[in-house]
Design a protein around this nucleic acid. Structure first.
Lengths: 334, 334
DNA sequence: GGGAAAACTGGGAGCGCTTCCAGTTGGAAC
DNA sequence: GTTCCAACTGGAAGCGCTCCCAGTTTTCCC
């Protein structure tokens, strides 16, 4: 920590022997600067190690040079899910191409909500990405209340936002269900995530779709959260109520991992006695025993598209909502 | 997105019938404001929904109201480790008590490095938390190059930063090793993380400490990265070279999980044939089969302490480096 | 009731950068 | 040589907020 103040544009201009305006034009490589002055300024910039002050820039420009990624989840433990890590990586990958910084807001608590509100109101960012909304989430309404672009990752339960990126949850889940039915399983159960999320309900619908087409009874259902312990607990309940179950379509890989553990504890073999299909296709799916047959959703891509959509919105374009395809990945568990 | 411009301090002042200075004093609840004016201003603020513009504030104040958490890792996949999620949660928990925003920088690529440089130079943040440095990491040197507080999470390999928070890696690893020795194991191996990290080398040293005390041969060592596949590969190598191994001290839970998988694949039972001890005590440790005996390190707490240290540094205090205790958690694998 | 100390008050000068605008310049065309 | 136009140039006015400071009002003692 040496107290060296950063040089200002004025100092750069002085050193280069030009006016501040000219220097500014060079920095922003605008037109109307002669080659000579441009080079002089560039030299001065390099020599002084000048970096424009973002606060001053933001003030003059009315743009901040930062966007926020808000992760809304009621349970901090959920943030531990590699899903979010992949989203962040995806967003980051896209942002790295720009000069924009990433503000991370964990809007789980009431604290976080207020925080996000404040950010929106005060123009601390040029745009917002909002992830994983629960049904009662007040964040959803925030979008059109403020003069700032907001894109959604996934959809809120009871609203269709103007801009969002989502995965084809329903289609993917249908694929998964069809797969186990194709395997000859007839007592197919489903373990959902929180039903106050769009993802969980859509995946449940996919299951219903497939079961209806096959003419099978879709009544074997347990609700859970998106965690491993939740999945294990749900599986245990399922075995108690429907001991005949011979396949499980899980709402996520974590749930499937939990189900696997519970099945093993109850002496059932996988996929022998019970076939299990997950959803997400994260690293976890490779580390279970047996490895998980699962529905792949492009999580990293979702993050990237989220960022891209926001960028194009900030650039004044009018992007279309996006639904990314999902596909079945066959491994050992089904 | 309604184009409602946010009100400015001037408008608030006008509405409250006071000067801008007075209004500013109220906002920052400084002294020298009569009760009457204070209330008038507060009313105006509420009515107008005024929120101070951070850019203007930053410009006038010379403080930004944001800190950055920089995660340096050479492999994006590593970021997926729940370890980082916990760190982020811990940091966030502490930051929520303040008005500071969190800037997330993934400094894995050269891009990220430049980015961090730029942030430091341009005073885009009031402080920096730097995590997980590899030995050759140029980030380490950044600390004292700029007039901005920097605290380290973990230590760089060849440097002792002025301010850091770390876990007692050496002590924890020694505990783990002593534990398996106490179990009667004599052919104790170690699988390390990347040896260009301080954490991995310190944990290796802990193993050496315990082996020396017990008078055992500390030569069974394999190096790996901190991932599950890495752990599995290392375990396989270990079995090939030292088939007599009866205990493994792993450099992380992920490594241990991989080792477990490899052991099972090679027909060894755990803990029967081989005892396995992990390090971290993250969720993963509960989801392996058998559940992992492991060294607990307070990751969330590490994040919190990291943030607290930075805050106190920003507040002008001189905090001391901190080493958080680790402890052995006994479960089924050893 | 007088005087000094304490408590307010608002004007104004920045913080560092962008950008409008009224000039200048330098050629090319005539 | 003019004339004109496009390409430059730099002064100046902000962007919204903080804070110093000189001036004004209150409050408090004796």
């Amino acid at each position: 920590m040496g107290p060296k103040r950063q040089p200002t544009l004025d100092e750069v201009a002085a050193r280069a022997g030009v006016s501040r305006s000219a220097a500014s034009r060079v920095i922003n490589n605008a037109r109307h600067v002669s080659q000579a002055k441009r080079e002089a300024v560039e030299r001065a910039v390099a020599e002084l190690g000048f970096v424009p002050n973002p606060a001053a820039r933001a003030l003059a420009n009315q743009q901040v040079g930062a966007v926020v990624l808000a992760l809304s989840h009621h349970d901090p433990a959920l943030f531990t899910d590699p899903f979010f890590a992949q989203i962040i990586l995806g967003v980051n990958a896209e942002l790295e191409k720009t000069e924009l910084e990433l503000l991370l807001v964990l809007a789980d608590t009431a604290q976080g909500q207020t925080r996000l509100q404040r950010i929106l109101r005060s123009r601390r960012a040029d745009g917002v990405m909002l992830m994983a909304l629960h049904g009662d989430d007040p964040l959803a309404a925030l979008a059109d209340q403020h003069d700032i672009p907001v894109v959604f990752g996934g959809r809120p339960l009871h609203a269709e936002p103007r801009w969002y990126v989502d995965a084809d949850n329903r289609g993917g889940s249908r694929l998964a269900t069809e797969h186990v039915i194709g395997l000859g399983r007839r007592h197919v159960a489903v373990i959902t995530g929180q039903m106050d999320t769009e993802a969980a309900t859509a995946r449940h619908r996919g299951y219903l779709d497939a079961m209806a087409v096959a003419g099978l009874d879709p009544a074997r259902v347990e609700h859970s959260d998106f965690t491993e312990p939740g999945g294990a607990a749900a599986m245990t309940r399922l075995l108690a109520v429907h001991p005949e179950v011979d396949a499980v379509v899980a709402g996520s890989d974590a749930i499937a991992a939990g189900a696997l553990r519970a099945l093993k504890a109850h002496g059932r073999t996988v996929p022998g006695d019970v076939a299990v299909v997950g959803f997400d296709d994260l690293q976890t799916a490779l580390h279970t025993d047996p490895q998980l047959t699962t529905v792949h959703q492009p999580v990293h891509g979702l993050g990237r598209e989220l960022a891209k959509m926001l960028l194009s919105l900030i650039a004044g374009e009018q992007p279309h909502p996006l639904i990314l395809p999902t596909r079945l990945v066959r491994r050992a568990s089904a």
